[in-house]
């Protein structure tokens, strides 16, 4: 890392700048966060699994799940994982700032598309009587799937912040390092989604 980071940390003293100087340490620290988030997701998955079948006479997976919408959501998120990867290599190989921003915006649009489909899906479920307070099963479902959606929302917010930072200060080392962490986070959310469609939707549907 060069002088950019120390300039941005002006007034914070020696140590914050020094911490930012080793990108490997910063990235490893972010992995530690993601793995703790993984354990958090794991606990909520465990609650969902124990609640399969506990529908208390309310609607279950076979009445509520819409696999067409699920497939579209899966493809949106998977494709956004590819486009954020393309943005990363565009950045690594120092292509133009314009093409980098283009791929970030494409990723953001896929993320927003995913959230829109997910919210439509939730409102369809609610229309069929599938609300969180209806049964233990639905509480388990709405504890887990919207938790992932919340992560995606914050990922979208983070993307907007990165776009603003690139426009304001350009592709400095600090901005690049922040974007690398955003890309990791975004790929990680797609990993969680594999667990959600396999366990929550398919597992729930087959056992429901």
């Amino acid at each position: 890392m060069d002088g950019n980071s120390s300039a941005l940390n002006k007034g914070l003293g020696e140590s914050p700048g020094a911490i930012h100087k080793d990108p490997d340490v910063v990235i490893f620290g972010f992995w530690v966060f993601m793995m703790s988030d993984l354990i958090f997701f794991g606990v909520v998955f465990a609650i969902y699994i124990t609640m399969i079948g506990a529908t208390a006479g309310g609607p279950g997976p076979r009445e509520l799940f819409d696999f067409g919408s699920l497939f579209a959501q899966t493809m949106f998120l998977l494709t956004s994982s590819l486009t954020v990867g393309i943005a990363t290599i565009t950045m690594k190989h120092q292509r133009s700032q314009g093409s980098f921003l283009f791929w970030v915006v494409v990723t953001l649009l896929f993320g927003l598309g995913f959230l829109t489909l997910e919210l439509l899906d939730f409102s369809d479920m609610a229309a069929k009587g599938g609300t969180p307070q209806r049964s233990g099963y639905l509480s388990g479902f709405f504890g887990l799937v919207p938790l992932h959606g919340l992560h995606v929302s914050f990922g979208c917010l983070w993307m907007l912040v990165m776009i603003a930072q690139v426009l304001a200060v350009g592709m400095t080392d600090l901005v690049k390092l922040r974007f690398l962490r955003l890309a990791l986070f975004w790929h990680f959310l797609d990993l969680i989604w594999i667990g959600i469609f396999s366990v929550v939707y398919f597992g729930g549907w087959v056992y429901g």
Binding site: M35, S36, L38, I39, G42, V43, F45, A46, I47, I49, T50
Partner: peptide
């Protein structure tokens, strides 16, 4: 290591 902890929590609970 995180995967190990995850499996203990999820499979243990189930």
């Amino acid at each position: 290591f995180s995967t190990l902890i995850l499996l203990i929590i999820v499979l243990g609970t189930a």
